[in-house]
Design a protein around this nucleic acid. Sequence first.
DNA 1: GATCAGATGGAATTACCATC
DNA 2: GATGGTAATTCCATCTGATC
Length: 320
Amino acid sequence: MAQKTTNLLNRLTFRQLQVFEAVHRMRSYSRAAEFLGLTQPAVSAQIRQLEQALDQPLFEYAGKTLHITQAGQSLAASVKAVFGEINRLQMSLSEMSGSLKGELKLSSVTSAQYIMPWLIRRFSDLHPEIHIQLCVANRAQALQRLEQQRDDLTILGMAPRHKHMEFLPFLENHLIPVLPSAHPLASRKRLTPEEFLSNPLLVRESGSGTRDIVDEYCTHIRVTPEQTIELGSIEAIKAGLAQEMGVAILPWVSVRRALKQGDLVRPSVRGLPLRRSWSLVHSQQRPLSPAAQAFHEFVSSQLAAMEQAFQPPGPDNRLV
DNA sequence: GATCAGATGGAATTACCATC
DNA sequence: GATGGTAATTCCATCTGATC
């Protein structure tokens, strides 16, 4: 038995386990290859070598669907434990050296792109040796990345209700009605939803969380916009507003400068603003890296400071 | 609706290269 | 020489659209 164990330890490599973990997580050789920055044959070869070392098939096909064998499930549990231990070791070593190093992969929904620089700047001041990669995507894309565990942490507008996700709500997103300052209704402080939505409504594309919230609002108040114009980003909608194409319901953080400069105005409309919390989300199935853990703790410690920094205007421009 | 051919997607194989 | 990588190619299952 001891001989067999020694042989196995001698024949297994961390690289094989890393590749196996990616294939197991993504249920695809090709996607695992893309995730690891390899080609599909390289992944295939690593899995084949691992199967030879273990003398057991780890994956098998039923048609075109990749299934994991019992041996594969068993290995996956062991790999998870081993990698968890290595993460803990890495964190201990980092603490011993007094500074955190490494990579931190973040993804964020588009609406949160206006608060991410604030967070990243302050976190980088604390941990200059952590290299941060931020991917900005719409909600559907961010959710896909989250499910594929492509990032350490994800910022979403509405936390998914999956049991295996952990989320930390950290700031309220206020979606407010805005229209160009040259608009005929711009002088009116108060508008009915019907008046506001009698203008072309500039909206995000399907798959966007902001779009979902706006659609929900229209359904809730039972008013159908006269016309909707779909634009692919918040910045495109702002450009559309600048061209007086219509009106929009946008995150306050995205238009606060335009409001301050007087390019846009915000009327009071029944049922608005809409409030949703941005949440920091990660999978329970994947232990946080030391850098991700540090970012998570940092965000937790900045709740009051963020609320102060991103507090919408008071009485004059009061939110209903 | 059944059948078939071509298109497509994903993994395996092969030959070769770079590095240690 | 061993290891780990790539590009090109092959194989196979599934999808899709045309035809009957």
